[in-house]
Structure formats: structure tokens, C-alpha cells
Design a protein around this nucleic acid. Structure first.
Lengths: 219, 219
DNA sequence: GATGATTTGTACGTATGTATA
DNA sequence: ATATACATACGTACAAATCAT
């Protein structure tokens, strides 16, 4: 987010380990052995330690003095909390977008939305998923509030592994598109409360999809 | 937030330096010299480095590879952004509180509000300010969402130095109390949208106070 | 419960990149 | 512009605490 161009070892490590965690290579509860990681990446323990501290600040790992850092355990309750927070933040961004997007930004959002309509027609799931990221990104940016945008982006990255299957359910694409339509209409017309409500509705439904998926997996 | 009881040097340093920054002892733009800090705290540079990295993750300092870390500069634009984010988060917490507070929590909020009414009567500014922190804290907790609550608490701590004078303006106490009244009524009656709007209104007015203060100072 | 092995926390030295004369 | 000074990034060594036997 705010790391300079010339990456240091620590930065690279932090990014790589974060990826390993978010992609599930390092499962929750796994111990982060400094020595092992240092060896694996062919560096000393110092940058490894600093990288781990960065991850701790992001909430990806838990730090207990004198004991190995472990990948943060995510309980279903915590996950639920995160999804709710995510939804509220997205809704807030939509609200602010309705209030403060420039005409050009509104136009861009509409264009993106229309482009996604074509992807729904051809049932291009992969294309839609990618375009969807851009779509939501436009709304984060449209809030014109980097603090909120950063928060929601970080949260989404953490939730990403749990959202993978979200568009697999049959009929999800057209439904998403219809929900997006309400969001776009509200934002473009400057309807703050409407944008908030529409987005909240949209992401809550995504959450429901997730809940049903984990319920299946847990059983 | 999640630091164990047995503090390590790094933790103590991070806490202490953070205090120095938030209290203004270390002004924005000030360089954090590892050598100097290590000497000042009578430790080696290693824990100092790690503490600085923690602070960077919190957004308190900026990290530029191969150059001294500096206390994060807060431009008026950034401050404005933070206040807006803060307001939106508070409003969101109020919204969620209206939806998910337990009867006991609603009762507690009402009690706190009534207690503050007495402080307004006696024009006890100091007492009101302290009670106000509790009041807002009840609403953060009432959201039953630790993610959001943490976000807003951290933001508030960062904004605290810029809010000091907020209750100095004449007539601010009764006005705050009246605004609180609308918030409490909405939350207690389970009116989510109303709670959101009322809180947003309340904190936006606080922001206005701040803006006029800085405008005076800048001119 | 005590002892040994493993791993973290801290100190310090060296090299490299940045800023300055 | 080149060189010098200086601060950080990284490596290595040791001490202290935790865990495992």
C-alpha cells in the first residue's frame, strides 16, 4: 500500500509469506519458524523476523513473546464478523461514491457495468470474476477516501480465500448483475441511502452463499 | 490490542514511541534515528527497528528503504479524509448497535446518556469529555463487531490530538447532548437507518468544529 | 520435575545505498 | 561530479526462555 519502489528483503518476504497464508499454503495454526523460513528463503533471521512483525500488524499472524508466531486462526465467528464488516464498509464506499464521484467516474462505473452484462450473456465466469474486482475497485476509489478504501481492500484480500467458490453456484452471475444494476443506478443518480442499501444487500447475499458453502463443508 | 502480558523490549518501545508521536512530542516529519533511539532507551538497535516497523504498519510512521523512518506527515487533506472515515465508521457502529444490541446494552447506553445529562446541567466539561468516551465506546462495543470496533478505536486514537479543543466552543455541551439524544432514541428503538443518520450528523458537526479551529490556526 | 534441545529476543558488526560537501 | 559521511539493511553471535523428553 505504501511501500516504496525499491523493495527490501523484508518487504519481499512479507509479501511472499502473506501470499502463502492467504492462498492456504500455510494453514491457520501453522508455526512460523524463523530459522526454517530464513533457510527456505536463503536470508538471515533478521528480515524474516521483521516480515513476521508486519504480518502480525495486518492480523495475518499472531505474535506471542518467546513463542513461535503462528498463522492466525480464523474461527467461523471471526469470519462472520469479517464478512459483516466487509459488507458495511462496501456499503459505506457505495454511499460515499454516490455523494462524491465525479461525472467521469460515474461514467466509468456505468461502462464497466455494461461490459459485465456482456460477460453474463456469454456466461464467462472467469471474465466476470475479474471484471467484478475492477467494478468494486471503482466504487472503493469513488469514495474518495483512501482510509476507507485501504481498509476494505485489505479486508477483501483476507477474505478472498473464502470467496473463491462464490460464483460457482448456478444462476449467480445474472443475479449479481441485477444487484449491481441497483447499485449503479443509485450511485449514478446520487442516491446515497439507496447506494448504501443496494450494496449492503448485494454483499449480504454473497455472504449467504459463503455460509451455505462452509455449512456443507463443516458437515 | 493483541499483545501478551509478558512484554518484550520491542513492545514497550513501540508503545512508548507511539505515545510520543500521538502526544506530539515527536512532531510529524521528525526523523526516527535508530541509533539515537537505541541510546535513549538503552537498548540495541534491533528492538528499535522492530518497533519502528510496527508503528509503520499502524500508519504512524513512514518507512523509506535505506532512509530514516519519519513520523507520518498529516496533511489537512489526509486529516479531512480521516475525519470522514471516522464519521462513517461511527455511524456504521450506531447502525449495527440498533440492530444487535442486547436489551441490557441498550439499557446501559440510556443510563450513560442520562448521566451525561447531569454533567451538562452542571457544565462539567471535563466530566462530560470522559463520559463521552465511554458513551461512544458503548456504541462501538454494541455493534458486536470487533473488526469495525477496532478500526474505529484506532482511528480515534490517531485523531485524538486534533480533537482536544472540541468541547471548548461555547454551547457545545448541550448541543452534543441533544445530538446524542437522537442517536440513543434511534438505537434503543432499533431504528438502524435513523441511528446511522443521527450519528453521522453528530460527528459531522464535531468535524465542522475542528475545521473552523484549524482554519483559524492556519490563517 | 529436571534436564537438554530448540527457538526466540537482543546485541553488535559489516556492507550497501542515500545524502551531502 | 566525485568523494566522503552517515544511516539503514542484513548477517552473525550469544543469552534467555520455552518445549520436549
Amino acid at each position: 500500500m505504501a511501500q516504496s519502489s525499491k523493495q527490501t528483503q523484508t518487504d519481499k518476504l512479507a509479501a511472499d509469506i502473506a501470499d502463502s497464508i492467504l492462498s492456504g499454503v500455510l494453514a491457520p495454526g501453522a508455526r512460523l519458524d524463523e530459522h526454517g523460513l530464513a533457510e527456505r528463503y536463503a536470508v538471515s533471521r533478521t528480515p524474516v523476523r521483521e516480515a513476521i512483525r508486519s504480518l502480525a500488524a495486518m492480523g495475518l499472524v499472531e505474535l506471542r513473546p518467546r513463542r513461535s508466531a503462528v498463522v492466525a486462526e480464523i474461527t467461523p465467528e471471526k469470519l462472520e464478523t469479517m464478512f459483516v464488516a466487509m459488507g458495511e464498509l462496501e456499503a459505506t464506499c457505495a454511499r460515499l461514491s454516490a455523494l462524491s464521484m465525479t461525472p467521469i467516474e460515474r461514467r466509468r462505473l456505468q461502462n464497466q457495468h455494461e461490459r459485465m452484462g456482456a460477460l453474463v450473456e456469454t456466461d464467462d465466469v472467469a471474465g466476470f470474476v475479474e471484471a467484478n474486482v475492477t467494478f468494486h475497485g471503482l466504487i472503493y476509489a469513488g469514495s474518495h477516501n483512501t482510509i476507507l478504501a485501504d481498509m476494505v481492500i485489505r479486508l477483501r484480500r483476507r477474505l478472498d480465500p473464502y470467496r473463491r467458490a462464490q460464483f460457482r453456484s448456478p444462476g449467480r452471475l445474472p443475479r449479481s448483475q441485477a444487484e449491481h444494476d441497483l447499485v449503479v443506478q443509485a450511485i449514478v443518480s446520487g442516491n446515497a441511502a439507496g447506494a448504501h442499501a443496494a450494496m449492503l444487500d448485494h454483499v449480504s447475499l454473497v455472504e449467504d452463499t459463503f455460509v451455505s458453502l462452509t455449512a456443507t463443508r463443516a458437515a
